[in-house]
Write a protein that binds this DNA or RNA. Structure first.
Lengths: 159, 159
DNA sequence: TTGATAGTTGTTACTTTATAACATATCAAC
DNA sequence: GTTGATATGTTATAAAGTAACAACTATCAA
């Protein structure tokens, strides 16, 4: 499995690669990867945990990149609408997507101790989700799966 | 599949049965099914759709059962913590549980047109969710699945 | 039946999260 | 360079949720 978030990894390249991937995608798709948007993504990439919009705004403010809520929310809207970030509804927070560019149904594993979030994927059209939907005649457009629990670092050691 | 919400059904018995089931559970478990809690559940049962806390509060107020936000939130907390209702994070709303008493991982099918919500179930320990979790060493405690789309009543007619 | 205790409700005040609306600036293509 | 679309700055406010404390009610043991 390819979830990132709980294992130690080269976090510097993780940030750099994330920014580069999005920059590339924006370039080829004529999207404006402006300073506010870039910085907002960078802030999210620095942590594999859900951050509040106002927390992000605080950091943007320090960089002189906007000081009012709409600035942060607009940057986040941009990132989310193009699949570069996700909202974690459960905690009203946001995280950078670890698989930008791919169309996917994210599954978030949220640690209730340390707030770390790992992202992995599901295939909603298969399995019981798709089955349940087709039996009721429901048309799936978007699915979110949020799992709360303990990450390996916070789980009690095995007996 | 046993999702309720999209098909037409005997809604009166649906409300009555829901109230009775919860009343029974509370009686045997020494929980206080007070007027506010009972009425809050009844309000939720009247609609198979997510309702906002303030919307519920408005109705409670009309009945003289509390007029300040904490009253509604406390009733909802009670209902949720005992599995009689669920929060739909996606829309900051609440619905009555259609399967009270059973321990379960709910899956919500949310219609973006009419706000109807159908509840069905998943078995997180099986399938990819459990696989993903065990591979990362994550301990699942609670999972929520929210699916956005169109219910059969709102979907465009088949060609 | 009284009194202790835990649980519930009423209320005030406040925090956190999010958005509407409009003015100004910048970009991108002709 | 003008124009139309897109992005930002800003004010003000809406919507969602909670902390804290006082007052009331149920429960149960002595």
């Amino acid at each position: 499995m390819d979830a990132i978030g709980f294992e130690t990894h080269d976090h510097h390249s993780c940030i750099r690669d994330g920014l580069e991937a999005v920059a590339g995608y924006c370039a080829t798709n004529r999207l404006q990867f402006t300073p506010v948007r870039r910085r907002a993504l960078e802030i999210l990439l620095q942590q594999h945990r859900a951050m509040g919009a106002y927390e992000i705004l605080d950091q943007l403010r320090e960089d002189g990149l906007g000081s009012q809520p709409p600035v942060a929310y607009r940057a986040l809207d941009f990132l989310i609408s193009h699949g570069f970030a996700h909202k974690i509804e459960r905690v009203n927070g946001f995280i950078a997507c670890t698989h930008p560019g791919h169309d996917h149904t994210p599954v978030f594993l949220i640690c209730r101790e340390c707030d770390a979030v790992a992202e992995t994927h599901a295939e909603p059209s298969r399995g019981m989700l798709g089955k349940a939907a087709s039996e009721t005649g429901f048309t799936i457009e978007q699915a979110v799966v949020e799992v709360l629990g303990l990450c390996p670092n916070c789980a009690p050691v095995a007996p």
